[in-house]
Design a protein around this nucleic acid. Structure first.
Lengths: 211, 211
DNA sequence: CTAGAATACGAATGATTCGTCGCATTCGCT
DNA sequence: AGCGAATGCGACGAATCATTCGTATTCTAG
């Protein structure tokens, strides 16, 4: 794979007047619609602009390129899901492993009911896979799950906990994605979420006793 | 996602003379090189043809379109890996769960040492995700793993075994892909393969006792 | 009210790519 | 050798896109 030119992914300039603020919102909303309805392949600046009732030129006033729009959508999505999951994982009214099960279920259902958007976002992510911004978000997500693992594996070293967190979170996200990709019924998704919940709990249980 | 025009993925015509047989081989070999070196994004018929020392026109004599070449590469890959994994999973000189561990390890290492090709093939797969041919291969792979699950879960119903096989195989393949995507050292990949081996074994063990 | 800044527009540009078609060359066979 | 079929060629048409830039419109401060 040859080195590609470095992509700019951050925003171009901030809106200063009210109309332009609205314009950026319109663009993001339209981008979501286009992405979810047409798929990553057909996500083009022209289509987004049209769906937003805005001209391409205006779009480029606030986003340096197409990827920036996609990355923004992805970031917002990560934000939302991250908060959802973390709130469940931190809820101390349940036993730790039950929290994990609940988290898995919530995640799978959330992926499921926005499947077309999530799938398209995933497809689009190929374009900025190696961007440092992505690594940042990944690390941040891992960080947040570390508190939970401290609870479950109090005797493990930090390194071991980091690794376990990585394994659990990666498995969760990647299987969740795959499952929602194969458009299944809600019942099937729930069955999968239970299976994965059990699998992850079984793994952690083994680590708990085995360390 | 709007419906796209149906893609033709099978071969166009079979070579009849020796030179054309050679030509097809050259094309496939070149396609592998291009895909692995340039990535899915830059995989174009022109580049493949040039790398093969062949004209685009000739290429289109034997492949109806670009996807057909990619799908052929993917199929060959599946064939090889499928056989590798199945041979390990069926080797009765080891305890079942140890066979599973060995399978996981073999799979992860195999993904790892051809990472750039596997990644690019995965990226390219977006274009024919829903093609029936893909489902076929998926089903076939699942089928082969069922014998193993019969050994491990003799008391489970066929339905339960099918589901468990799906869960295990999906998790395996999808995590393996992700891990090799984040170009890691061989040692890291081995650590992951052990972790996933343990995770899958822990899951199956729980099913064995829980049913 | 008005000037100048901010914003919006969208046609034009340049780059890529897929797949085809008419013609040239080579092969296999008698 | 010589004929018809198979094979190989690569310029070309058509399509799609990302991004820019000159111009028009709208806002805001004074």
């Amino acid at each position: 794979m040859k080195a590609a030119k470095k992509p700019v992914i951050s925003a171009r300039k901030s809106p200063r007047q009210r109309r332009s603020t609205q314009l950026v919102e319109d663009i993001l909303e339209a981008a979501t619609r286009v992405l979810s309805r047409e798929g990553a392949q057909r996500f083009t600046t022209a289509r987004v602009a049209e769906a937003a009732g805005v001209s391409v030129g205006s779009l480029y006033q606030y986003f340096p390129n197409k990827e920036a729009i996609l990355f923004r959508l992805q970031t917002d999505e990560w934000q939302r899901t991250g908060e959802l999951l973390h709130s469940i994982l931190a809820d101390s009214s349940l036993a730790p492993l039950d929290r994990l099960r609940a988290t898995v279920k919530a995640f799978f259902l959330s992926e499921w009911d926005e499947a077309s958007l999530r799938i398209a976002l995933g497809d689009a992510a190929l374009n900025y896979r190696e961007a440092p911004e992505v690594q940042e978000h990944r690390k941040a997500g891992l960080q947040r799950s570390l508190r939970f693992l401290g609870e479950v594996l109090p005797n493990a070293s930090t390194k071991e906990r980091r690794f376990a967190a990585d394994v659990v979170m990666t498995t969760l996200s990647v299987v969740g994605k795959k499952v929602s990709e194969q458009s299944r019924s809600k019942a099937e998704v729930e069955a999968w979420s239970e299976a994965m919940g059990e699998m992850l709990c079984a793994y952690l249980s083994r680590l708990m006793t085995g360390l």
